[in-house]
Design a protein around this nucleic acid. Sequence first.
DNA 1: ATGCCTAACACCGTTAGA
Length: 289
Amino acid sequence: MLLLDADVEHPLPSDRLTIATWNVNSIKVRADAVLAWLKDTNCDILLMQEIKCVDENFPTDRFIEAGYEVHVHGQKTYNGVAIVSRVPLTLRLKGLPQDETDLVDEQARYLEVEHGDLIIGCLYLPNGNPVHDDDGLSAKFRYKLNWMQRLARHAKTLDQLGRPVILAGDYNIIPAVEDCYDINAWQGDALHHPESLKAWRSLVYQGFTDAFRAHHPSRIAYSFWDYQGGAWQKDHGIRIDHLLANAEATDRLLATDIDKNPRGMERASDHTPVWCQINISNTADQISA
DNA sequence: ATGCCTAACACCGTTAGA
């Protein structure tokens, strides 16, 4: 197969993986940019959100030709998540486990895979705006909070396996003041609402580390700039795309950063990739030790 | 200042994003 050529061009590092998350805002529009980015960077596994298409319309063949295997949990028009990888993955889950009150999550927002003992969840957390409607808290905001509760519960289940876990994606959460160009403009918004932050903390206090903030305690950096009002040019950004790692995964993290370049290109997504590098070689060592 | 872009879908406007 065509995979052979790709393997020759990009010999795989055996001891470390680069994992990135990128809300592409339509894979149909962004396929060229994504493939170019994969070629330019040394990304092994890319988690994508807002692909905005059903599984059959994902440009799977183009990624296979580039040497990546493809996992898709798609949906027509809205949402949709996908994972492409040049290391072998095993699919674990499409959609978060439901609680007793939910029937089926009709929105495609979660996809989970594993590579060796490393578990990787790709997520697109609901926006949640507007917070209020005539009756109080809106259905959209309640859906966000419920989704976060289900995510936290699932994260706990995964953590209890004792394996490294990375839950990454578009969280639609501005964790702190320094993650926004002007937090006053976002007070009360679903992305920085006290209830949203409370749900975020329930993940963090459960032992999941914000990889970017752990590596860069005082750096101002963003992952999203609105299309409107010249937000990119004025650097009016927010940091809402995150890589959360449990203790086992955090111990193996080598680096984390945000690649601003794609946001400055023609016809860019409003989000830009966030990546981390993780050591997977001592995973096997520690298990056999 | 909740609509200054952008994308999808179906229709030449509406919905959603954050």
